[in-house]
Nucleic acid binder design. Structure first.
Lengths: 313, 313
DNA sequence: ATTTCGTGTCAGTTTTTCTTAAAGACAAGA
DNA sequence: TCTTGTCTTTAAGAAAAACTGACACGAAAT
């Protein structure tokens, strides 16, 4: 009849003992110091003795704790090894992510190496689909979708909100017809985003945008149309005209100076980017890690939002 | 950035893999099969792959699971070893139990070897105290108290209810004045329990009991008085008279035939036996194990309750 | 003397784990 | 073939565990 101590308490203890600090352990385990304190206390009550000697100046291990520590560490090393074996042979090292091609090209892929750095053992496969994929059919672990956030039967988390803004090559700001006000657009081709995932709200297309900007004398239909947002951006970078761009897609080119936003005006989109996956994947270690990373990247992106870029230039 | 699987799920998996049976694992872990099933499922979702192949005839391990198993076992062995070190040097191997002397002598001590069999590493110290001990002062882990169950500031669990019944040596059933009805008590000394922990209800002393039995012509004061319940029993066994006994204290002697209950009549006591300890000990492994064992012994005792003995003889 | 840092405690909430109950899958025996 | 029993799975709710946030307290640093 063996009865092991609460395993989480052991894990917490191992960390606290290694750092000789509850606060450090709390950081490592991503919990509050109070949680650590309570776990240690629980373990101390379980074994019926103290683990730490709380002296004036420092936290010291008791003899028993000291003696158990190396063994405890071995135990956790073995657990980690076992875990590696399990996750390696489950297909958990491969994570298949479905993303719209433009977001993949302009946002996800350029950042992906940062994820790889952090989780070298997870191999990310990008599936850039024009259509929305069916989780039941395709073997997709997770998708980033652009829409209104209603995906029934799936777990949904808002990744980033999107906004729309006109962008063009900085060259168009000089020359014969420099762009200073919306009316100046009359002298330049308009580049249209014809990608299927279109916002149904105002200002998602030139007709709407021009109307909202109070410009009536420009033919909103004029100019080229592309079936992918990234192609619209490429055309704009090439100086082919002015594009009505999604900020996330245009961001990298704006930051690099290949594009500028001629007007200090972005309009929010009613559509946003959502991370979506079946509930059955929500505990999957790789999925969780990727979502966490996406969250951080999105926060960073929003921090360096086009609005800031616009203000700066 | 390591992220271990849920540790409890690993423990459950190790057990299930060892038995190749969820049901067996459930028994070993003292949980329901459903709980095991869910833990395994959670772990499978975490690693993103299956652990068992569910074939028609049997449960088989997947390769990954198979490969991880020996390492997992080592890990848990180490954890157990670490746990042993911790509990050994905490004073957790010594458990000090405070009990009323009579219950100790007649009920607890005779059973104690069964606990020792089960938990050889826990050394039980019995402190048989006439007075109620103070947990704060004496170094007591757990107490069994006879009373009304009101012990403020402590965790209390009902162990057994108590009842009172007249008992005497079987020899008194024969002879010049065989005991058949309460009125026959006139010809025999009454043995009085003067132990301090007395029920305040009726029928806890001879005066009350005789009155309840409808006998008015007997002097309830007659006979010897003892300050411990067990001594009253000893006197009864020795044929010195008829004792009004607590059933738990008399049980062993009744079963052994050294005592008999002349009347098919037990009256419940308003006092019961309670297991009591400070809340801080409630997670202590030794305390928990001892309480669990007490519970089982008490259930067994109640099963073979004096009422049954009375009916049988 | 005041601030800062780290531990300890409490109440309340969230998350996890477990049980109960019922369903489904299969094999053995009638 | 039709039970019958054994075992796994699932759903829903209950129970237990873990965590957070707020704050108290003492020691060290400013």
């Amino acid at each position: 009849m063996k009865s092991l101590p609460p395993l989480n308490a052991l894990k917490v203890f191992e960390s606290a003992a290694r750092h000789l600090s509850f606060t450090k352990a709390a950081e490592e385990l991503h919990v509050t110091p109070g949680a650590v304190s309570q776990q240690i206390k629980a373990l101390e009550e379980f074994i019926g003795g103290r683990l730490f000697r709380r002296t004036k100046r420092a936290l010291l291990l008791t003899d028993a704790a000291q003696a158990s520590l190396p063994i405890l560490r071995e135990a956790f090393d073995k657990l980690e090894e076992a875990s590696r074996i399990l996750t390696a042979r489950g297909d958990s090292k491969r994570l298949t992510v479905s993303v719209a091609p433009s977001l993949a090209a302009k946002w996800l892929v350029p950042r992906l190496d940062r994820f790889h750095e952090r989780q070298p053992e997870i191999e990310v496969w990008i599936s850039a689909d024009m259509e929305v994929v069916d989780f039941a059919v395709d073997d997709i672990d997770l998708a980033i979708r652009y829409g209104a956030g209603r995906y029934s039967g799936l777990e949904v988390e808002l990744l980033m909100e999107e906004s729309i803004l006109p962008v063009c090559s900085p060259r168009l700001l000089q020359g014969a017809h420099p762009i200073r006000t919306p009316h100046d657009l009359a002298h330049h081709p308009l580049l249209h985003d014809g990608s299927p995932d279109q916002d149904d709200m105002a200002s998602t297309n030139w007709a709407m945008w021009l109307k909202a900007a109070g410009v009536c004398d420009i033919d909103a239909k004029r100019g080229a149309k592309f079936n992918q947002s990234s192609l619209v951006i490429e055309a704009a970078v090439a100086g082919k005209g002015v594009a009505l761009a999604k900020s996330a897609i245009a961001l990298a080119d704006l930051e690099a100076g290949r594009l500028v936003a001629p007007f200090d005006l972005t309009t929010p989109s009613s559509f946003s980017y959502y991370v979506v996956h079946p509930a059955s994947k929500s505990r999957n270690a790789a999925v969780k890690a990727f979502k966490k990373w996406l969250r951080e990247e999105a926060d960073a992106t929003t921090g360096a939002h086009p609005a800031a870029v616009v203000a700066a230039q």
